[in-house]
Amino acid sequence: MAEIFVCPDSEMKDGEVRIVRQGRTEVGVYRHKGAYFAYRNHCVHQGGPACEGIVKGKVVDLFAEDKTFLGQTYDHDDPHIVCPWHGWEYKLLTGECAPDPKIRLKKHEIVQRDGGVYVVV
């Protein structure tokens, strides 16, 4: 186990990501609503850099009571990490693959101390 320094706590804003590279280890560190999340930058699909793409809210179909379709919207409380190679989506809060929770990005622990953010590898 080792800790890798990511950045000072004050540096990352909500919605930002940093890619941390140490040798062959690559981790994406996200800040969302003041909390940090870290995942291996490796997509389960074809090995793409999952954390180097965009983050988008989960897309939701909207239906009326009678099940008629009303349109679509984003659920920004469920942000998705989108792999830039083919668009596989992972839940930023858990690392689960959005359409199949059995598949997931490898999670890394984050440690915050002395004003710094560290990821455990």
């Binding site: 186990m1 080792a2 800790e3 320094f5 930002e16 990501v17 890619i19 590279r21 140490q22 954390c51």
Partner: peptide, 13 residues
């Protein structure tokens, strides 16, 4: 625990 010096990048930049 070891503390290492990585390369840290911001893909947006």
């Amino acid at each position: 625990m070891n503390i290492m010096n990585p390369i840290v990048s911001d893909p947006a930049r």
